[in-house]
Design a protein around this nucleic acid. Structure first.
Lengths: 228, 228
DNA sequence: TTCATTAGTGAGTATTGCTCATCAATTTAG
DNA sequence: CTAAATTGATGAGCAATACTCACTAATGAA
């Protein structure tokens, strides 16, 4: 069965989903076509399993790398750069995820879906921490920030994924990080240092925002369906 | 032939590309299956023609509306809002474009491709003009800005396109415009011009409003299924 | 009237994901 | 140690569906 998945991964990568024939996968795996359907309910499920296995491997050392980094900017850049790099290194798999998997109704019940949520949640955390620290402003919805980061990354890589060009993960990550960072950063220390006026209201606001966050989390935690 | 395209548009919208059967399109159009292939080389080309026709109609009054608007921020917001609104109003067609058309090799030879380029070129122009006017900084690649805008929009609308939630074009457009604008704006005119400091009370109010908004959202998120 | 062109037909084909009755091998039971 | 049962694999065949093509009907020109 591992043999089938290995071969399937390769064929899917090379030919894309609809051009990859179950007959060919079976032949290359040295089994007959019916054998595939003993282990997988259908071609779609085969792809899902293949992608899931790949994705878990990709995300394995992810947290470890992130934990080392200090500072909002460095951590944000790492997230962006990482995503860009995965796409750059594995265009075949990413094409399958972007074009096929994500369009299917089964997608939500996939661990790819869950892992992606987990993956992007890191981004929200970093932004949230920066907000708490007074580094970022608090008046933009976190989701929008996440959408612009990940959407921007994918949009940027389309041409490459269509096999019609290339891109530099480093250059792109620098520019995107800069744009997001400046878009979210509080007023630059114009003249004097940091908090020119801590203002009692500031403390109050921070605590209000913390309350809101807790409410969000508790409200979100109970519903099992989609949110945030 | 117009009849076939009309029907095809409807069936594609309703059922998606692969679930839409040529037999069904033919039947509903009151012709036999072979007739479709007299006018269109294949099912793919039929979809392409359908989308092209739709897209041209969508972009018809686009420039006219844009020309009226003054100011970088208003124009940027319009572009973003417009894209969000099209997706919100025509999820079926947009799904077809995002999931099918754009993944095909023929895509580049499509007028949809050209029209999209033309469409996003407006964004680059606006940003470029703001750079020339000294309103925006010049050290970020224009393409990145464009990618984050359009990628962000699409990423934001996924859940809705999967039929699992909703979004507000207005709210999203506000937030995205703000993020991009602040990310690109040059240092605020520190001394002269503009409210040098928006007055602490104003800042406090804005942030309180943001807190309120988040509370509303989290309160709303718990009921029903997914949204916002 | 006749020929040519165009529009349309529908029976048929090729491809391909998938099923299922059957066989072989391996494990468990008596 | 034989018999039964479970598991693994087979491959012939089915069903769905995009697409083809030889042929007919209608329309227009000479």
């Amino acid at each position: 069965m591992q043999e089938i998945m290995q071969v399937a991964a390769q064929v899917f990568r090379d030919k894309g989903y609809s051009e990859a024939l179950t007959a060919q996968i079976a032949a290359r795996a040295g089994v007959v076509e019916g054998t595939i359907y003993r282990y997988f309910p259908g071609k779609r499920d085969l792809l899902i399993r293949v992608v899931e296995q790949w994705y878990e491997r990709i995300l394995a050392d992810y947290d470890q790398q992130l934990r080392v980094l200090q500072g909002t900017r460095a951590r944000l850049r790492f997230l962006i750069w990482r995503h860009l790099t995965v796409i750059h290194n594995e265009p075949g798999m990413c094409r399958l995820i972007f074009n096929q998997l994500r369009a299917w109704p089964e997608y939500r019940r996939t661990t790819v879906f869950d892992l992606t949520r987990e993956y992007t949640r890191r981004t929200l955390e970093i932004v949230q921490q920066a907000i708490d620290a007074g580094e970022f402003r608090a008046d933009l919805p976190l989701r929008i920030v996440r959408d612009m980061i990940y959407g921007g990354v994918e949009h940027h890589t389309w041409v490459y994924l269509r096999g019609e060009g290339d891109f530099s993960p480093d250059t792109a990550a620098d520019a995107m990080t800069e744009l997001v960072y400046r878009g979210l950063a509080c007023e630059q220390p114009a003249s004097s240092q940091r908090p020119p006026r801590p203002a009692p209201a500031e403390v109050t606001l921070r605590r209000l925002e913390a309350v809101a966050r807790r409410l969000e989390q508790s409200a979100g935690a109970k519903g099992g369906s989609a949110r945030v």
